[in-house]
Design a protein around this nucleic acid. Structure first.
Length: 290
DNA sequence: ACCTAAACCTGGGCGC
DNA sequence: TGCGCCCAGGTTTAGG
């Protein structure tokens, strides 16, 4: 699933929904996806929900935090006590139903003092939830220390910085912008989309880009991430990303090259091609991207 | 330091 | 219908 726009959408919705609520119970249905002591968070109040790269941080009173990584197929679905919020979910039957939870993919359930429940579902079970110490706002999570600047933030993704990391590498430019230690938050969908928008071939050696191309790439990364958040993220398949209500995002309707191989380029009509770059599916238009 | 493949899992889709 | 294969939004690790 989830790249920066999807995780950001979930973060914003959880912050609004959970702030001020107390955790009353946690049920762990899949031990391998939960780390830390449940006791340490029972009775604690949600102070806010934050995001760093693709990790969600539920900040709790008493200097604790619930950290969540959704990997490819993780979902966080909230059911309020009266379940009114689910009324607009039509045709939600079958194995991936988020109307009837828990389902066979539910790994953790967090219960709140207003009878609300947060379901962590994960078909492929790669995702995790961890209880971590969070002293003075700093979460004690090793993963957080290695991330590069946030790809959505024009103050941290500066032109100077992007020029610097690209100049240092002769790897394909797509792999550099996918590297979370260099740039945090871009995943395979938005790497493909940003490179199309910027007119740059994904395989180009990073250090071969000229200044004008790097400016275009920076603008494209910032724009595609913002646009996707405005559309509540990309829901490609039934079993993966959803908003916390269970609704799909909408940005799959605006993708221009990702998984569009054999279709026509929306810009020039040429056929979109698919190759592998670093083992990942890579989609491009050979006329529009140089 | 580079690159690839495999690993973690489960299901969908396609060709035969 | 069914089997075998490849594919999948992420990340880490092993091997060359």
């Amino acid at each position: 699933m989830p790249e920066l726009p999807e995780v950001e959408t979930i973060k914003l919705q959880l912050d609004q929904t959970l702030k001020g609520r107390k955790i009353t119970k946690i049920e762990v249905l899949s031990r391998k996806n939960f780390f830390g002591q449940i006791d340490e968070v029972i009775g604690r109040k949600v102070e806010g929900v934050e995001r760093r790269a693709k990790i969600i941080l539920v900040k709790l009173s008493g200097e604790k935090c619930l950290a969540v990584h959704l990997k490819l197929t993780g979902q966080l679905i909230y059911h309020s006590a009266d379940d009114k919020v689910l009324n607009y979910l039509e045709k939600e039957n079958g194995p991936f139903s988020v109307k009837q939870l828990p389902n066979k993919f539910t790994t953790v359930i967090v219960f709140f003092d207003n009878s609300g429940k947060l379901y962590f579902n994960d078909l492929r079970k790669f995702g995790w939830m961890k209880v971590v110490d969070c002293k003075e706002g700093e979460c004690n999570l090793p993963e957080l220390k290695k991330f590069g600047p946030e790809a959505i933030d024009e103050k941290t993704l500066t032109l100077t910085y992007l020029k610097r990391i690209l100049a240092k590498s002769k790897k394909p430019v797509k792999l550099v912008i996918l590297d979370q230690e260099k740039l945090a938050g871009v995943g395979n969908i938005y790497a493909n989309e940003a490179l199309f928008m910027a007119g740059i071939m994904p395989t180009r050696p990073a250090n071969s880009l000229i200044d004008k191309e790097i400016e275009n790439l920076r603008d494209s990364i910032l724009k595609v991430l913002r646009d996707s958040i405005a559309h509540k993220g990309t829901s490609d398949k039934d079993e993966a990303y959803r908003q916390i209500s269970g609704e799909k995002g909408d940005f799959q309707n605006y993708l221009r090259v990702y998984r569009k191989d054999k279709e026509k380029c929306p810009r020039c009509g040429n056929v979109i091609k698919k190759i592998k770059v670093g083992g990942r599916g890579t989609f491009y238009c050979s006329k529009c991207q140089k």
